[in-house]
Design a binder for these strands. Structure first.
Lengths: 112, 112
DNA sequence: TCTATATACAAAATTTTCTTAGGTATAATA
DNA sequence: TATTATACCTAAGAAAATTTTGTATATAGA
């Protein structure tokens, strides 16, 4: 499963997309969600994810809330108001990139 | 045009796809071809491309032929026999990755 | 003729980004 | 009681691209 290689650069955009869909998520949840969506083909490693989350938080794109659930600590991340805009542009650029990759690889364009 | 960011990791696969399509190409030609295909939205920088070509050559995926054209030197790259196989698997993995990105971004799957 | 642009290659230093490996801790299951 | 799942995180290193710089020829325009 070497698809991991191609993930480089897309991680932030993927996280931002998930947070547009879900209002708030915690780190572990994000790794599991990506695994679910991709049927196990893509796996975010925690060593890559947490630094990315912290970076986005430092940039003011995300804020956090702590919660204690079933005796375990959780840290929820959600988009700030500014973050929503940045998320939109990051995601739409990634969609454009996908579209360009389709052209290069002779994949048919997405329906819609 | 920040799509460049997402290119990370895909460069080799893109080069290999182009060389599957074209038998042989030289570096500058590759940058121009990508620019054409993507209507200027994606631009391979030479500083990224040449190290990638050299790495693929060192790995035995590509071989080179020099040619003098219009007084300027050209270095053509083409796939080795082994390279064809590696190109196919790299490209199909990138296609799978694109498919996973479509799922995450709620893009409709490619036609076909 | 001089200058800028296009063509064509490449190396070096830097930065970004991920991987690998490790650490802490609780709950549930076998 | 030992393992797995959940849940957070950091640090060292490697990988990969960017930026910067350099070389050189051809062509078009002023």
């Amino acid at each position: 499963m070497q698809q991991q290689t191609y993930l480089k650069g897309c991680l932030s955009a993927i996280v931002l997309q998930l947070l547009q869909d879900n209002k708030r998520m915690y780190g572990y949840e994000i790794t599991q969600r990506v695994r679910e969506i991709t049927a196990g083909e893509l796996q975010l490693t925690e060593g890559a994810l947490y630094p990315t989350l912290h970076k986005l938080e430092a940039e003011g794109v995300l804020t956090t809330e702590n919660a204690l659930v079933d005796g375990r600590n959780r840290k929820y991340y959600k988009l700030t108001e500014n973050g929503h805009q940045q998320a939109q542009s990051a995601v739409s650029e990634l969609a454009d990139f996908v579209s360009n990759l389709q052209k290069i690889l002779h994949l048919k364009p997405s329906i819609g």
